[in-house]
Design a protein around this nucleic acid. Sequence first.
RNA 1: CGGGGCGUGGCGCAGCUUGGUAGCGCGGGUGCUUUGGGAGCACUAGGUCGCAGGUUCGAAUCCUGUCGCCCCGACCA
Length: 612
Amino acid sequence: MRVSRLMLVTLRDDPAEAEIPSHKLLLRAGYIRRVGSGIYAYLPLLWRVLQKISTIVREELNATGALETLLPQLQPAELWQRSGRWAGYTDGEGIMFHLEDRQGRELGLGPTHEEVITALAGDLLRSYRQLPVNLYQIQTKFRDEIRPRFGLMRGREFIMKDAYSFHADEACLKQTYGAMDQAYRRIFSRCGLRAVAVEADSGAIGGSASQEFMVTADAGEDLILASSDRRYAANQERAVSRPADPVPLAGGPRAGGSGEPLATPGQTSIEQLCSAHGFDPSQTVKVLALLARFEDGCLQPLLISLRGDQQLNEVKLANAVSARCSAEHGTLLDIAPLTAEAANREGLAPLPFGFMGPHLSDAVLSGAASWTPRFLRLADGTATALETFVCGGNCGDTHLVAAAWGGIGPAPESLDLRSAQPGDRCQHDSTQLLEASRGIEVGHIFQLGRKYSAALEATFTNEAGQEEPLWMGCYGIGVSRLAQAAVEQHHDANGICWPTAIAPYEVIVVIANVAEEHQNQLGEQLYAELQSAGVDVLLDDRSERAGVKFKDADLLGIPWRVVVGRGAASGVVELVERATGEKREFPANTLQETLLARLLPERSGLLEASGP
RNA sequence: CGGGGCGUGGCGCAGCUUGGUAGCGCGGGUGCUUUGGGAGCACUAGGUCGCAGGUUCGAAUCCUGUCGCCCCGACCA
């Protein structure tokens, strides 16, 4: 391709709309244009990148025996109502764009395809003899994101590879899950990305085991916690650790465990309480009042106890609340702090905010207009493990010192609700500490189990002749996000440095001065030769000054640059490697050999990392 | 949705406090010179100052409303 015909529009200044390097560079180098919030045009250069990534994804998935397909994006509401996700995905903070056709039928624009694929699988897969099957597609997904940001990182329309596998039993599912894990590692490696696999929460999709693939980058939206020996890595949403030991409260329980009242005027936070009376935060129990809202309209007050020095992990809490209530009340829509104003609107007497203890009576909820008049009481294990502690006295300006479970009432149900923090000791080895880094989630694999197949009655006949729901897995890769993540990981002050395997072009031949006939002729000749050797090559034939063309070549990030300039008359050209800046001069007639020797291994991708 | 910010030629910005009819840099076009790291000179085209009301003799500037976009939080490939 000739640069003069490429519709190349590069920008000298950073566009005001972009914040992070990859977003700025993709805009400046003419790879993308914003059409609306979270909606981008993939310009010809980026489309080539996306196609190269897609090819790698196809090759690796096909090698595992997966089948490519293409499913509809416009999906009937009825399908989603059957799986029970229509309400959750359209009400509340639902992410599904939905519409009505002129017959008044409701339709959704696919944010994911579990429903469609499971319905099809239920139709087509009837016998264990047909299993396992793994289907995938690469296409645009639509999600009404609460806040689109960072260009392609979180768009409302984006390209995703999604795959769904179907199995006769769980062992087979685990086998395919493992194969996908390996395929994903090869895909990211071939794309030139440094990616790490981390344990993850399953989120709205549900299911049991799940693992995310994170491209490490400062601009990443997720916090990864990993042990220094690399044997453990998890998303903070999911991460577990050993909490620091509490500082024991001297003297044991007082007043038979019901605690001794202490005047704490205006001391509504753990910090204020501790600094006023010399307590350590780990000697206290803090109590959070929250309100869970469900699909069926149920509003369930929550009373959560945590050790004072710990932070609540909202993902763990949401999972715990769903597990206890969703069977009766449907999808958990959200959990929000229970505020004084909300309590007032319910017609309740004021709650002792800032002085709540774990034994706050359900009586404070009696007469509530719409809430369930009983707290769901849960506690983190660090709180229930305390023999004695300081907690709120359930009336204004009073705390209880040296209270104990049993003395103030029974301990709530105990589970892991705390956020693991950088610096915490690891569970697998307490000499290892968790270290934090940031990551961009580019892939996520799930063992879904039978959630969707049971809901949509997608069954098969097993070896014993009985009908049972299919076992399912699902596996996603954010293709357009991956392209931007690659830029985030591979750029410098002058522009993008694409890994060769996903670069839009592999080589750019720059004619320094098109007015010089020698240069022109030699440039054209090299361009033709590289093309016929199967190289993806650009020819910068524009009548710009050399400096402009060099700047553009660097900004675009083409891995190899061949400069046809002063040496052209004597048949000498210069070869420059974008990533390192390394320059070497060659006789033009040996260029192709030298270049191909470098290009061929780079093209196949498999990185230094997985090396010999 | 809560909090913060911004809308002025294609892009990046100034002007707004203290109203007087719009400017700078980059980019575009033409010509000459230049030609290995975003060239120089000259000429030139291009803007209902997001939109709608209001105040005023007069509004980019002040007031009200509205729309759009960006950043921080909740959502996720």
